[in-house]
């Protein structure tokens, strides 16, 4: 938002932390995920956005087709060696601040596919904020992951990513 650069020289004081809380609250409640489905987990991600679970209750129903408009990349599914450079490029195209949820066993560790074709964990190429276990995780699990991420965003405030 640009406010970080303005407030950074001021250090932590009553003004910046209050602004930080406000900014964190705002950011946490409107996390827009990139519409980036890879495999099985993408279907559960769609189910989470669907009528039964309604991700919109947490401010994240607006799945953006363009990485330029997204705050959050949900890596939903296994990442193949061929897809890895594409995924990294999409991550680089997202504007700061940005977060990553690694959804499912395959994205987090390679899952059952411990072989030549699959990247053994997406954290090898992008920094991951929240890992959601499961194969695939239930939509509730994804929502739980998102709520944990929201707490993290609130705590982060306007400080730059560490």
């Amino acid at each position: 938002m640009g406010v970080e650069q303005l407030l950074e020289p001021l250090g932590e004081n009553v003004l910046t932390t209050t602004v930080g809380k406000l900014v964190g609250w705002g950011r946490a409640n409107s996390v827009w995920p990139a519409q980036f489905g890879l495999a099985c987990c993408a279907i559960e991600m769609m189910a989470a956005a669907g009528p039964a679970y309604d991700l919109g209750r947490f401010g994240s129903e607006a799945m953006r087709a363009s990485p330029r408009q997204s705050d959050l990349m949900i890596v939903a599914g296994r990442v193949s060696q061929k897809m890895a450079p594409v995924l990294r490029q999409i991550y680089d195209q997202m504007p700061e601040p940005k977060w990553v949820i690694s959804m499912g066993a395959c994205a987090s560790t390679g899952g059952v596919f411990n072989n030549y074709a699959i990247l053994q964990g997406v954290d090898k190429i992008v920094p991951v904020d929240v890992y959601v276990p499961g194969c695939p995780p239930r939509p509730e699990d994804l929502i739980n992951g998102l709520m944990i991420l929201q707490e993290k965003i609130k705590a982060q405030g306007i400080r730059s990513r560490v």
Binding site: N114, N115, Y116, A117, I118
Partner: peptide, 17 residues
């Protein structure tokens, strides 16, 4: 890519567990 993965002398790969 180098090699032909489904040949039997191509290792399965992945990471040691």
């Amino acid at each position: 890519w180098i090699g032909h993965p489904l040949r039997r002398d191509f290792p399965v790969g992945g990471e040691p567990v």
